[in-house]
Write a protein that binds this DNA or RNA. Structure first.
Lengths: 134, 134
DNA sequence: TTACTATTAAGAAGCATTTGCAGTTAAAAT
DNA sequence: ATTTTAACTGCAAATGCTTCTTAATAGTAA
C-alpha cells in the first residue's frame, strides 16, 4: 500500500522538502523559493508552487490557510466554530460550546499576548456524502 | 458611547449588512454582491469589498480566512496548533496536546463525515509586544 | 441652503497562484 | 547499459481575487 502515484524525486523536490523541514517559520511559497535558490539558483517559483501542491496532496507537508482562495463573511460576530466541506467548499456553523480555556494554555506555551482562537473543522457534508454513496 | 467613527450608513452599507445577516451560508464577496444586486442593481463589487472590510474592522461582521493573502507551508504533518501574530503575521507552533474529542462532537452536531480539525490562535507575538511598550 | 468629506461606480492595477508549452530528466522497461 | 516515456522544469503569459484610483455623488453639520 503506497500513495506514490508516479511521482519522481527530482533534485528540486528533494531540496524543497529538505529546506522546508529545516525551519519552523512556516514560510510562504516565495520565501521558500528564496531559501531553495541558495542551493538551486535556477529553480523557478512555479516549480516551488507545483511541488508544494504535490507534496501537500501526498501528505508529505502541510499547506496552511488552505481554506480556499476566496474569503468568506459571516454576519454573526460572537465566537463560534465552522465546518467546511472538503469536497464542495460549503461552510456551516457548528453549534457547540466554545472552549476559551485553551487560550490561556496557548498564551502560556507561546508567550503571545491577547490570545483569541478559532476552530475550523473539515469533513464531508451530507450532500457530498450521499452523492458518493449513490 | 458609540463605535461610529465618521462612518455613514449608506444604502449600500445597510443592504450589505442586511443581506449578510439573512443567511448562514458564509458567502464570498462576489456571492454577496449578487445577493445585494437584487436590491441595488448598480452596486459595484468594489463597494462590497470596501464595506466588508470596513464592517469587519468595526466588528460588525466577521471576516473568515483572514489569515493573510499568502499561503504558508509546514514541514510537520502531524496535527498541531498554530498561533499567528496579528501585527506582523509571524506564525509559531503551539506545543500543547491536541483535543481530538471535539471532532466527535462536531460530527454529531453538523452531520458531516470524516471530521478533522485545526485550531488557530491569534495574538501579539513577543517581538511586537515589546516594541509596543517601548 | 451651503460646505464638507465620506462614499460611490467603474475600471485599472496589484499580487499570489496557476497554466501552456517546449525542452529536460528520472526511472521503468528492454 | 540503452531505450523509452511520461513526469517534470523554467519561462512567460494568463487567471482570479482584492485593492486602488478618479471623478462624481450624497450623507451630515452648520
Amino acid at each position: 500500500m503506497h500513495t506514490q502515484l508516479n511521482h519522481r524525486m527530482t533534485k528540486q523536490r528533494q531540496i524543497i522538502i529538505e529546506e522546508l523541514r529545516k525551519v519552523t517559520s512556516h514560510p510562504t511559497a516565495d520565501q521558500l523559493h528564496e531559501m531553495v535558490r541558495k542551493r538551486l539558483p535556477r529553480i523557478s517559483l512555479s516549480t516551488v508552487y507545483r511541488n508544494l501542491e504535490t507534496l501537500s496532496s501526498e501528505g508529505m507537508i502541510l499547506k496552511m490557510d488552505s481554506a480556499g482562495t476566496q474569503k468568506r463573511f459571516d454576519g454573526t460576530v460572537e465566537n463560534h466554530y465552522h465546518i467546511r466541506c472538503s469536497r464542495c467548499g460549503r461552510v456551516d456553523d457548528v453549534h457547540m460550546e466554545t472552549i476559551p480555556e485553551i487560550e490561556e494554555i496557548a498564551r502560556r506555551r507561546s508567550s503571545y499576548q491577547s490570545v483569541s482562537h478559532i476552530i475550523e473543522f473539515t469533513g464531508i457534508c451530507p450532500n457530498c456524502y450521499s452523492q458518493s454513496r449513490g
